[in-house]
Design a protein around this nucleic acid. Structure first.
Lengths: 235, 235
DNA sequence: GTCTATACAAGGATAGAC
DNA sequence: GTCTATCCTTGTATAGAC
């Protein structure tokens, strides 16, 4: 960014690719280390080793440990915001809630480290995310909550507290990323595959929709392929 | 333990009370610090300051940072086990699930720091709890799962995957301790009071029971006081 | 632009004074 | 039994060699 595009002296040339590659390696490694040990517990040394780079290289690229951490948090918030599209009273409750649960599950599944990074930040009292939680996110929740209330008034779902409902969806989906170690320990699996994820998504969708008495205003109820699991899936 | 009960020379006498008081202070302080920063991120220094004792005093009483941490984990597992009573097919599904959700909420509410300590441990890959997760806890889950399955066979509830159901209850209740910072940020509250906790418990009970088609084999359905919240409870 | 060498604070743990 | 002083490691960050 600081370099003119067509400088007379072009010393950094093939280094652009190196830089991009190194930055990527650092970000990926750091997300894992921060997720695992929290901000304080993570050491630049450990991040550097995971990225297979010298320690000072990490600081050279990222400026400081804190800058790196904040950058990762921002990246995760960006991913998060990407699936927070607007909804209106006119939308179909069943469809909206189904899509909500599905996307949230996918986010946790695609970015488990980022998910845990976020969790660790909140667990520690959210020192870097106070503003976000009290501002942007709160407004988003209130907007959705108002729509849920209107649906309830129109008899499209039970009159449940919409905020608790949002928390229910967040927590139950987030669980599979944040508590992965527990999930794997109990199920005896090495990892959850796509089939597991689909089954869990179907289960959560079913319970939430039925539990809140959500009506589909379209044709058939959107109850996805009946999640009556066929075989017990432990070790 | 190393001291004979009736030694001729009884040098430690009035110190017993001091010791008990100091140990208690350390355990309370350490639980908070470990919960907030994880095992690595927590420093003995910070724990000592929170307990208002010199650093080496903490190590003197507890032996080492790791011993202190393990002790706190064990204490939390003990609290946890205390509410894991046995159930049988003969029990009433609605009652059992209601009690389950209620107790789990109470545990998170009474011991939020312990709850977060546990969460941080799992988030970090559960290095100290591998055995517990793969052994004791797994067996407990399997036992309960079998009962849920039998209930489903008898038509007392829908044939949902019992393991996902247990995870749903764990995650949705745990959320209010672990993600407290987020919950407070979004609701605009300073803290959740007893009324909030009761309302949330009622909401979760309702959604889970209804969502899983749980039948009460007794008289009236155990739907606790209808949780149709009356007033929006944000700031 | 990259990395080795180093500065200086904070980490866990212990020896020894009181 | 308690706490000060100290050891050695590890932490973040930077200066300067290449």
């Amino acid at each position: 960014m600081t370099q003119p595009t067509s400088a007379v002296k072009t010393p950094p040339r093939r280094n652009d690719a190196t830089r991009a590659r190194n930055e990527q390696a650092i970000l990926t490694a750091a997300e894992r280390i921060f997720a695992r040990h929290g901000y304080r517990g993570a050491s630049v040394q450990a991040i550097a080793e995971a990225a297979e780079l010298p320690k000072s290289n990490v600081l050279y690229y990222m400026g400081s440990k804190q800058a790196l951490y904040v950058r990762l948090l921002a990246r995760m918030m960006k991913r998060w915001n990407a699936l927070l599209d607007d909804i209106s009273v006119e939308d179909d409750p069943a469809e909206v809630l189904t899509a909500f649960i599905e996307r949230k599950m996918q986010l946790s599944r695609r970015h488990p480290e980022g998910s845990r990074l976020f969790a660790a930040e909140i667990l520690g009292g959210a020192p870097f995310l106070q503003e976000y939680l009290h501002g942007e996110l709160r407004e988003w929740v209130e907007g959705r909550a108002r729509v849920f209330e209107q649906w309830a008034e129109r008899g499209l779902m039970d009159p449940v507290n919409p905020v608790w409902l949002i928390f229910l969806i967040w927590s139950s989906t987030q669980h599979y990323a944040d508590f992965e170690a527990q999930v794997l320990g109990i199920t005896g699996k090495d990892a959850l595959d796509d089939a597991d994820t689909e089954e869990i998504t179907a289960f959560l969708t079913r319970v939430v929709l039925k539990g809140c008495g959500v009506q589909s205003r379209q044709k058939a109820p959107p109850e996805r392929k009946m999640p009556s699991y066929s075989v017990r899936n432990d070790a």
